[in-house]
Every structure is written in C-alpha cells, then in structure tokens.
C-alpha cells in the first residue's frame, strides 16, 4: 500500500515538475520582428554620397494593375515615420539628401506588402460531428479551430543612379536592400515605435553604407 502511494506521489511530482516548466517562447509582438539586409558585391558604391527619396510608399500586391488604375499607398502618417527615420539614419551615416532633380547618386525606393496566414487545426479523433447537440468532444481532442495572422513587410531599396543600366527594360541595379517583417498588430503608438526601431536597425547592421 505504502509502495503504491509512494509510486503515485513520485509520478505526480514528476508530471508536475515537467508540465509546470513548459519552455517559453515569444511573449511580445515585437519578439517576432525581424530585420534582414543585403548589399550587392558586384558594384563598388563607396563613392555614392547623395540620395533622393519618394515621400509615399506603395503597397505591393500579387495583382496586376489594370490600365488606368493607380497603385495603393500606405497611410502618409506611417510613410512619414519610415521616411523620417531613413533620413535620420542616412544623415548619421554621412549621406546627403538631395532633390530628385538634383542628380543624386542613388534613390531610395520603399514599398510595403501584407501577407495573411491561416492556421487550421482539425483532430481526426474529434467526434463533434456525431454529437453536435451536447457539444461533447473526446477528452484531449478539441473542436476544429483556425486562426489568422497578418504580417507586414517593408522593403527599403537603395537603387543606383550612376551605373549604366544593362537590363533590357532599363531597370537600375539595387545596391542595398533592407527588409523588415513583423506582425501587423498592436496599438498605433507601439506599431509606430516598432517600425521606427526596426528601420534604424536595418541601417545599424549595414556598415557598408557608412561614408
């Protein structure tokens, strides 16, 4: 009897210790933010010192624009957060901002896009179909559920204005690209602060841009 009691106590204690210590993970929305950067090795752009930038940020979608249709833009409030942070970082790195008609060495072109992911869970052992009235389900197997997550991506491209285009459609080479991705959630102020922090990070991790 004592033996069984001790066995049960040991099993219970071990189960408690184990289940009570489930590993953690991301706690805040900002924990999921990532900032990626890359630069071209084909072109030496250490001599580029001036840039121009568009104030608005278009939204990229998978759909082709119809003739006469104008592209969508992100709200100017957020666009201003992004462009002012870029200006601040570029200035700190030694670049000079000029007008688009003042023959800049490079252009900064920004764009944004959204992706929605749908997660669906259905347990084969869920018998809800047969017991729709009572709402009963087999212990441990929950009704089918789904959730959606929307992520937003901001692309910042430093496009060369000095290299002769070799592309048949006249596109210019991209010297540097910064990509920010994170969840499109949270209050307006926290979202703004995350965007600003991550734009800053993209430049901090790119010493190649220092002049």
């Amino acid at each position: 009897m004592k033996h069984k009691k001790l066995l049960s106590l040991a099993a219970f204690t071990l189960a408690l210790l184990f289940s009570g210590c489930r590993p953690g993970g991301a706690e805040y929305i900002s924990d999921l933010d990532v900032v990626g950067t890359a630069y071209t090795k084909e072109i030496d752009f250490s001599g580029r010192k001036t840039y121009a930038m568009w104030d608005s940020i278009p939204q990229i979608s998978g759909d082709q624009l119809e003739p006469g249709e104008t592209p969508k833009y992100v709200s100017q409030t957020y666009a201003n957060v992004v462009t002012s942070e870029i200006d601040k970082q570029m200035k700190a790195l030694g670049w000079t901002k000029v007008g688009r008609d003042q023959n800049p060495d490079a252009y900064i072109q920004n764009a944004s896009m959204q992706n929605t992911y749908v997660y669906y869970y259905y347990s084969y052992y869920y018998y809800g179909y047969y017991y729709p009235y009572s709402g009963w389900y087999y212990p441990g197997y929950y009704p089918p559920t789904y959730s959606t997550t929307t992520t937003g991506t901001l692309l910042m491209m430093l496009v060369d204005a000095k290299t002769e285009s070799t592309s048949p459609n006249g596109t210019q080479p991209v010297l540097w690209i910064g990509i920010i991705n994170g969840l499109m959630e949270g209050s307006s102020s926290s979202f703004t602060s995350r965007v600003s922090k991550n734009v800053g990070q993209a430049f901090k991790q790119s010493p190649i841009l220092k002049r």
Binding site: P23, G24, V34, T37, A38, S206
Partner: peptide
C-alpha cells in the same frame, strides 16, 4: 526525456553580405 530551451535574445546574424536581426528561440 530531456527538454532544452534557450531564448537567444535579440541578436544580429551575419553571413557574407547578408545580415539578419531578431529574437531567436
């Protein structure tokens, strides 16, 4: 059954001309 876990914190991982920053678990 041993479970190991580490929150690597916010860090920048660089390889050649690429860099990636974020929190890793």
């Amino acid at each position: 059954w041993n479970v190991f876990y580490e929150d690597m914190g916010y860090d920048t991982y660089t390889r050649d001309n690429l860099a990636l920053s974020g929190e890793q678990f």
